[in-house]
Amino acid sequence: MRLVINKIVLFLSTLAALMGLMFLFWILITLTLKGINALNIHIFTNDLVNNGLRNLLIGQFILAFLAVIIGVPIGMIAGIYLQEYSFDNKYAAFIRNLSDVMMSAPSIVIGTFIYAIVVMPFGHMSGWAGALALAVMMIPIIVRTTDDMLGLVPRELREAGIAIGAPKYKVIFDIILKAAKVGIMTGFLLAFARIIGETAPLLFTSGNNEYFTLDLNREFPSLTVAIYNLSTMPDKNLVDIAWAGAFLLTLFVLVINLLGRYIVKEKKR
């Protein structure tokens, strides 16, 4: 009897695993088929007004890069503080937990926050607001990464630096950060991959723009928002463009993730 129950449970578990995997591969396969079907050279050379994705791809990259430029210094230095300077352990633990909680805060709420403090005072949506929203999403991820990676640096390195009389900030910048460089960069790469696929915080902060623009004071083209808008349109051509965009986005995110995985593995070797 026990053996039978054992068999049944193992079978059910395997079945559940297969079912889950089936759904997930179903998504990937439809995405690939639809995406590749809709891909052509015009997608990359035209803007959205002419049924292309050029301005959207560039816009999304700019938004994410700006978010990195805003978010990384803040998050990284905060992470350094948590790992290197926090002798008051309670405060550091508190900030750490807070940052983890913030990491899972609903992204749409961050959108509403930025809407309230940036969009409403200026009276219109702008690229800056979108980049800020993404940066706010990114900061806790960066804090966590930096914190974890610095934690892996052996204590002896620190002591060696201090023993030869280097001031602490020098030890941090010249020794510890160098030792943790690969891990931190990988973490940033993954954080970048995570925010580049975000839609919700951009919906009413950067809005969307059918034309090519680099002016961050205006509504800014964004791939994810455009995918959302296009795929609910009745025009089949536009839906196809949305699929192409979705495919490119997923491909990009997955490639970055695989790359990050590979780097980590190489480093461990």
Partner: peptide, 24 residues
Amino acid sequence: PVGVAIELLAAIPSIIYGMWGLFY
């Protein structure tokens, strides 16, 4: 490999899930 696949799937942007849900 299955574990890696699962972790990768967690990285897919949610908008993709929504789109797939709507159409398929």
